[in-house]
Protein backbone atom coordinates (compact mmCIF):
# COMPACT_ATOMS: atom_id res chain seq x y z
CA UNK A 1 0.00 0.00 0.00
CA UNK A 2 1.20 3.46 -0.95
CA UNK A 3 -0.07 5.04 2.20
CA UNK A 4 1.78 2.62 4.50
CA UNK A 5 5.06 4.52 5.14
CA UNK A 6 3.32 7.86 5.61
CA UNK A 7 0.65 6.25 7.79
CA UNK A 8 3.35 4.62 9.91
CA UNK A 9 5.13 7.97 10.26
CA UNK A 10 1.87 9.70 11.06
CA UNK A 11 0.81 7.23 13.74
CA UNK A 12 4.23 6.95 15.40
CA UNK A 13 5.39 10.59 15.25
CA UNK A 14 2.17 12.63 15.15
CA UNK A 15 -0.83 10.75 16.48
CA UNK A 16 0.80 8.73 19.25
CA UNK A 17 2.83 11.72 20.57
CA UNK A 18 -0.29 13.90 20.47
CA UNK A 19 -2.20 11.41 22.63
CA UNK A 20 0.82 10.93 24.84
CA UNK A 21 1.09 14.71 25.19
CA UNK A 22 -2.34 14.74 26.81
CA UNK A 23 -1.31 11.84 29.04
CA UNK A 24 1.91 13.55 30.18
CA UNK A 25 -0.07 16.67 30.99
CA UNK A 26 -1.88 14.62 33.65
CA UNK A 27 1.31 13.37 35.27
CA UNK A 28 4.25 14.47 37.30
CA UNK A 29 7.39 13.57 35.38
CA UNK A 30 10.98 14.72 35.73
CA UNK A 31 12.34 12.80 32.70
CA UNK A 32 14.26 10.33 34.88
CA UNK A 33 11.79 8.10 36.68
CA UNK A 34 8.37 7.08 35.45
CA UNK A 35 5.46 9.50 35.03
CA UNK A 36 3.22 9.64 38.12
CA UNK A 37 -0.50 10.07 37.45
CA UNK A 38 -1.77 13.18 39.25
CA UNK A 39 -4.99 13.89 37.38
CA UNK A 40 -5.71 17.53 36.66
CA UNK A 41 -3.33 18.92 39.27
CA UNK A 42 -1.09 20.54 36.64
CA UNK A 43 -4.03 22.33 35.07
CA UNK A 44 -5.23 23.44 38.48
CA UNK A 45 -1.83 24.95 39.15
CA UNK A 46 -1.53 26.93 35.91
CA UNK A 47 -3.99 29.72 36.82
CA UNK A 48 -2.01 30.33 40.04
CA UNK A 49 1.34 30.46 38.28
CA UNK A 50 2.45 34.11 37.96
CA UNK A 51 5.20 33.10 35.52
CA UNK A 52 2.62 31.57 33.20
CA UNK A 53 0.57 34.77 33.17
CA UNK A 54 3.73 36.75 32.64
CA UNK A 55 4.74 34.57 29.70
CA UNK A 56 1.27 34.94 28.21
CA UNK A 57 1.38 38.71 28.62
CA UNK A 58 4.83 38.94 27.07
CA UNK A 59 3.86 36.66 24.18
CA UNK A 60 0.69 38.62 23.42
CA UNK A 61 2.67 41.85 23.49
CA UNK A 62 5.13 40.33 21.05
CA UNK A 63 2.41 38.95 18.75
CA UNK A 64 0.52 42.25 18.62
CA UNK A 65 3.66 44.20 17.69
CA UNK A 66 4.95 41.53 15.34
CA UNK A 67 1.71 40.87 13.45
CA UNK A 68 0.47 44.45 13.51
CA UNK A 69 3.49 45.99 11.82
CA UNK A 70 4.28 42.98 9.67
CA UNK A 71 0.80 42.78 8.14
CA UNK A 72 0.62 46.49 7.33
CA UNK A 73 4.11 46.43 5.79
CA UNK A 74 3.34 43.24 3.87
CA UNK A 75 0.15 44.67 2.33
CA UNK A 76 2.01 47.88 1.47
CA UNK A 77 4.87 45.97 -0.17
CA UNK A 78 2.49 43.66 -2.03
CA UNK A 79 0.52 46.56 -3.49
CA UNK A 80 3.76 48.36 -4.39
CA UNK A 81 5.06 45.24 -6.11
CA UNK A 82 1.86 44.84 -8.04
CA UNK A 83 1.82 48.43 -9.21
CA UNK A 84 5.51 49.02 -9.80
CA UNK A 85 7.28 45.87 -10.84
CA UNK A 86 6.88 42.15 -11.19
CA UNK A 87 10.64 41.74 -11.36
CA UNK A 88 11.90 38.50 -9.86
CA UNK A 89 14.94 40.38 -8.63
CA UNK A 90 12.88 42.67 -6.37
CA UNK A 91 10.79 39.81 -5.04
CA UNK A 92 13.90 37.70 -4.55
CA UNK A 93 15.61 40.50 -2.63
CA UNK A 94 12.61 40.95 -0.34
CA UNK A 95 12.53 37.21 0.30
CA UNK A 96 16.21 36.97 1.18
CA UNK A 97 15.88 37.42 4.99
CA UNK A 98 13.31 34.62 5.11
CA UNK A 99 15.83 32.16 3.67
CA UNK A 100 18.33 32.51 6.48
CA UNK A 101 17.52 30.91 9.81
CA UNK A 102 15.97 32.70 12.78
CA UNK A 103 19.25 32.08 14.57
CA UNK A 104 21.28 33.95 11.95
CA UNK A 105 18.74 36.79 11.77
CA UNK A 106 18.87 37.10 15.55
CA UNK A 107 22.67 37.09 15.70
CA UNK A 108 22.96 39.65 12.90
CA UNK A 109 20.67 42.08 14.69
CA UNK A 110 22.32 41.30 18.02
CA UNK A 111 25.46 42.68 16.40
CA UNK A 112 23.80 45.61 14.60
CA UNK A 113 22.10 46.63 17.86
CA UNK A 114 25.09 46.07 20.17
CA UNK A 115 25.20 48.69 22.91
CA UNK A 116 28.85 49.66 22.54
CA UNK A 117 29.85 49.25 18.92
CA UNK A 118 26.65 48.28 17.11
CA UNK A 119 25.92 50.37 14.04
CA UNK A 120 22.44 51.45 15.16
CA UNK A 121 23.70 52.83 18.46
CA UNK A 122 26.54 54.60 16.66
CA UNK A 123 23.90 56.23 14.52
CA UNK A 124 21.80 57.17 17.56
CA UNK A 125 24.72 58.80 19.34
CA UNK A 126 25.62 60.61 16.10
CA UNK A 127 22.08 61.99 16.13
CA UNK A 128 22.67 63.04 19.73
CA UNK A 129 20.19 60.53 21.13
CA UNK A 130 21.00 58.29 24.09
CA UNK A 131 22.21 54.79 23.29
CA UNK A 132 19.66 52.03 23.78
CA UNK A 133 20.43 48.59 25.20
CA UNK A 134 17.94 47.08 22.79
CA UNK A 135 17.97 43.49 24.04
CA UNK A 136 18.52 44.31 27.71
CA UNK A 137 16.11 47.19 28.25
CA UNK A 138 12.80 46.53 30.00
CA UNK A 139 10.89 48.59 27.48
CA UNK A 140 12.79 47.77 24.29
CA UNK A 141 13.49 44.03 24.58
CA UNK A 142 10.15 42.74 23.24
CA UNK A 143 9.76 45.39 20.52
CA UNK A 144 13.33 44.60 19.43
CA UNK A 145 12.65 40.87 19.14
CA UNK A 146 9.42 41.66 17.28
CA UNK A 147 11.38 43.93 14.92
CA UNK A 148 13.96 41.25 14.15
CA UNK A 149 11.23 38.85 13.12
CA UNK A 150 9.36 41.50 11.15
CA UNK A 151 12.58 42.06 9.24
CA UNK A 152 12.88 38.35 8.54
CA UNK A 153 9.26 37.67 7.59
CA UNK A 154 7.89 40.82 5.97
CA UNK A 155 9.05 39.91 2.45
CA UNK A 156 7.64 36.39 2.74
CA UNK A 157 4.31 37.68 4.03
CA UNK A 158 4.27 40.30 1.26
CA UNK A 159 4.62 37.52 -1.31
CA UNK A 160 1.66 35.67 0.22
CA UNK A 161 -0.45 38.82 0.00
CA UNK A 162 0.88 39.48 -3.50
CA UNK A 163 -0.39 36.06 -4.60
CA UNK A 164 -3.77 37.05 -3.19
CA UNK A 165 -3.76 40.30 -5.14
CA UNK A 166 -3.35 38.35 -8.37
CA UNK A 167 -6.74 36.73 -7.83
CA UNK A 168 -8.54 40.09 -8.03
CA UNK A 169 -9.68 40.47 -11.62
CA UNK A 170 -8.59 43.54 -13.57
CA UNK A 171 -12.04 44.43 -14.80
CA UNK A 172 -13.07 45.48 -11.30
CA UNK A 173 -10.38 48.17 -11.31
CA UNK A 174 -11.14 49.15 -14.87
CA UNK A 175 -14.78 49.64 -14.04
CA UNK A 176 -13.83 51.70 -11.00
CA UNK A 177 -11.47 53.85 -13.08
CA UNK A 178 -14.21 54.60 -15.57
CA UNK A 179 -16.37 55.74 -12.69
CA UNK A 180 -13.57 58.17 -11.75
CA UNK A 181 -12.43 56.32 -8.65
CA UNK A 182 -8.97 57.39 -7.42
CA UNK A 183 -6.23 54.87 -6.67
CA UNK A 184 -6.43 55.62 -2.97
CA UNK A 185 -10.17 54.91 -2.91
CA UNK A 186 -9.72 51.84 -5.08
CA UNK A 187 -7.35 50.42 -2.49
CA UNK A 188 -9.78 50.88 0.42
CA UNK A 189 -12.97 50.05 -1.48
CA UNK A 190 -11.80 47.28 -3.80
CA UNK A 191 -8.41 45.82 -2.95
CA UNK A 192 -8.81 45.38 0.81
CA UNK A 193 -12.36 43.96 0.77
CA UNK A 194 -11.56 41.52 -2.03
CA UNK A 195 -8.32 40.54 -0.34
CA UNK A 196 -10.13 39.63 2.88
CA UNK A 197 -10.21 35.82 2.48
CA UNK A 198 -6.50 35.68 1.63
CA UNK A 199 -5.67 38.10 4.41
CA UNK A 200 -7.59 35.93 6.86
CA UNK A 201 -5.56 32.86 5.91
CA UNK A 202 -2.31 34.84 6.08
CA UNK A 203 -3.27 36.17 9.52
CA UNK A 204 -4.12 32.72 10.88
CA UNK A 205 -0.78 31.37 9.62
CA UNK A 206 1.33 34.26 10.89
CA UNK A 207 -0.42 34.63 14.25
CA UNK A 208 -0.07 30.91 14.92
CA UNK A 209 3.62 31.05 14.02
CA UNK A 210 4.18 34.24 15.96
CA UNK A 211 2.75 32.73 19.17
CA UNK A 212 5.44 30.06 18.99
CA UNK A 213 8.36 32.46 18.89
CA UNK A 214 11.38 30.75 20.43
CA UNK A 215 14.59 30.86 18.39
CA UNK A 216 15.17 34.60 18.58
CA UNK A 217 14.66 34.64 22.34
CA UNK A 218 16.78 31.55 22.95
CA UNK A 219 19.72 32.98 21.02
CA UNK A 220 19.63 36.57 22.29
CA UNK A 221 17.99 37.27 25.66
CA UNK A 222 17.24 33.76 27.00
CA UNK A 223 14.06 35.12 28.54
CA UNK A 224 15.75 38.01 30.34
CA UNK A 225 16.23 40.59 31.63
CA UNK A 226 14.47 38.81 34.52
CA UNK A 227 11.22 37.70 32.84
CA UNK A 228 10.78 40.48 30.33
CA UNK A 229 11.16 38.27 27.25
CA UNK A 230 10.22 34.87 28.63
CA UNK A 231 7.69 34.01 25.94
CA UNK A 232 5.43 31.02 26.41
CA UNK A 233 7.33 28.56 24.23
CA UNK A 234 10.58 29.44 26.00
CA UNK A 235 8.83 29.00 29.37
CA UNK A 236 7.57 25.56 28.32
CA UNK A 237 11.08 24.62 27.16
CA UNK A 238 12.60 25.70 30.48
CA UNK A 239 9.95 23.89 32.53
CA UNK A 240 10.48 20.67 30.57
CA UNK A 241 14.26 20.57 30.31
CA UNK A 242 15.74 22.90 32.93
CA UNK A 243 13.27 22.55 35.81
CA UNK A 244 12.50 18.86 35.32
CA UNK A 245 8.75 19.48 35.28
CA UNK A 246 7.93 17.68 32.06
CA UNK A 247 4.32 16.99 33.07
CA UNK A 248 3.68 20.63 33.88
CA UNK A 249 5.34 21.67 30.60
CA UNK A 250 3.04 19.27 28.73
CA UNK A 251 0.03 20.82 30.45
CA UNK A 252 1.26 24.25 29.36
CA UNK A 253 1.59 23.01 25.78
CA UNK A 254 -2.02 21.77 25.93
CA UNK A 255 -3.05 25.26 27.03
CA UNK A 256 -1.05 26.79 24.16
CA UNK A 257 -2.73 24.38 21.74
CA UNK A 258 -6.18 25.42 22.97
CA UNK A 259 -5.34 29.14 22.80
CA UNK A 260 -4.13 28.78 19.21
CA UNK A 261 -7.16 26.74 18.14
CA UNK A 262 -9.57 29.29 19.65
CA UNK A 263 -7.67 32.20 18.09
CA UNK A 264 -7.65 30.57 14.65
CA UNK A 265 -11.37 29.83 14.82
CA UNK A 266 -12.09 33.39 15.99
CA UNK A 267 -10.07 34.96 13.20
CA UNK A 268 -11.64 32.82 10.50
CA UNK A 269 -15.07 33.63 11.86
CA UNK A 270 -14.55 37.37 12.27
CA UNK A 271 -12.92 37.76 8.88
CA UNK A 272 -15.51 35.50 7.21
CA UNK A 273 -12.64 33.68 5.53
CA UNK A 274 -14.83 31.13 3.79
CA UNK A 275 -16.73 33.56 1.62
CA UNK A 276 -15.50 36.01 -0.95
CA UNK A 277 -17.15 39.29 -1.89
CA UNK A 278 -16.31 38.52 -5.47
CA UNK A 279 -19.04 36.89 -7.57
Amino acid sequence: MFIAPAALGFVVFFLYPALRGFYFSLTQYNLLGTPQWIGFANFAEIPHDPLFWNSLKVTVEYVVLNIGFQTVIAVLLAVLMQRLTTSTLVRGALLLPWLISNVIAALTWFWLLDYQIGLVNQFLSWLGVDRIAFFADNFWAIPTIAMVNIWRNMGYTALLVFAGLQTIPRYVYEAAAIDGCSEWRAFWRITLPLLRPVLAMVLVLTVTGSFQVFDTVAVTTKGGPVNITRVIQFYIYQKAFADGQFGYASALSVVLFVILAVLAALQLRLLRAGESDLA
Binding site: L15, P17, G21, Q212, A240, S253, V254
Partner: peptide, 24 residues
Protein backbone atom coordinates in the same frame (compact mmCIF):
# COMPACT_ATOMS: atom_id res chain seq x y z
CA UNK B 1 -11.54 10.20 6.55
CA UNK B 2 -7.83 9.37 6.70
CA UNK B 3 -7.02 12.44 4.65
CA UNK B 4 -9.07 14.63 7.01
CA UNK B 5 -7.13 13.23 9.97
CA UNK B 6 -3.83 13.94 8.19
CA UNK B 7 -4.95 17.50 7.53
CA UNK B 8 -6.05 17.93 11.13
CA UNK B 9 -2.43 17.51 12.16
CA UNK B 10 -1.68 20.81 10.38
CA UNK B 11 -3.49 22.60 13.18
CA UNK B 12 -1.43 21.12 16.00
CA UNK B 13 1.37 23.44 17.16
CA UNK B 14 4.71 21.63 16.68
CA UNK B 15 5.79 21.94 20.31
CA UNK B 16 2.78 19.88 21.39
CA UNK B 17 4.05 16.80 19.56
CA UNK B 18 7.74 17.62 19.93
CA UNK B 19 7.78 17.22 23.73
CA UNK B 20 6.40 13.64 23.60
CA UNK B 21 8.51 12.93 20.51
CA UNK B 22 11.57 13.81 22.58
CA UNK B 23 10.57 11.09 25.09
CA UNK B 24 9.91 8.67 22.24
Amino acid sequence: LVFAIFLGALLVPPIFTQLPNFIL
